[in-house]
């Protein structure tokens, strides 16, 4: 199997997982997961606000686009669709990481910082996008591979002319 076939399988599975986490966040924002959300290995935060709902919608749509694009991964449009889905996931994860960094520096309205308080801000639970981030970084390899292959094709075409 060539790497694009592998990529197709990998991102189909990852897309499905992201889609599932999107559903999870939507359920959490409606309070359907209850205490289970936080008690289950203490991996996910329990938040029922409208930003959680919005995040859930974005994660769900990101999963859908990644999976949809992965089915025709070697095609430029399919690959582009997966890339857009991945950009959406990175955007959510980036916002969550920024929230953690700002939370650790703002000191809850007082200029009193402790090392424990600072480090504690970076401890789990994390939103789903952060857990999924390492698995999504594989896309960078495919993006650079795509660009290299396109460059080679372009050079061949120019040489042919």
């Amino acid at each position: 199997m060539d790497k694009w076939r592998w990529g197709s399988v990998y991102f189909s599975v990852l897309g499905a997982v992201i889609l599932w986490f999107g559903c999870w966040e939507l359920a959490t924002s409606y309070g359907l997961t209850g205490a289970w959300a936080t008690n289950w290995l203490k991996l996910f935060p329990e938040s029922m606000d409208w930003m959680c709902l919005w995040r859930g919608i974005v994660t769900f749509l990101a999963g859908l686009l990644i999976m949809w694009g992965a089915f025709r991964f070697s095609n430029v449009e399919g690959f582009g669709t997966s890339v857009i889905g991945m950009l959406m996931l990175w955007l959510v994860a980036g916002c969550d990481i920024l929230k953690m960094i700002c939370g650790s520096l703002s000191g809850d309205g007082a200029w009193s910082y402790s090392l424990y308080g600072f480090l504690d801000s970076y401890a789990p639970p994390y939103p789903a996008a952060i857990w999924l981030l390492p698995f999504s970084l594989v896309m960078i390899y495919f993006i650079t591979s795509w660009d290299k292959e396109e460059e080679q094709k372009e050079m061949k075409a120019t040489a042919g002319d």
């Binding site: 974005v58 686009l65 916002c95």
Partner: peptide
């Protein structure tokens, strides 16, 4: 594909604004 991305970008917009 553009509407899902727009929803995500606006999420990022407001998330950055609040955070």
């Amino acid at each position: 594909t553009g509407i899902p991305l727009a929803i995500a970008v606006l999420f990022g917009f407001f998330s950055f604004f609040y955070t």
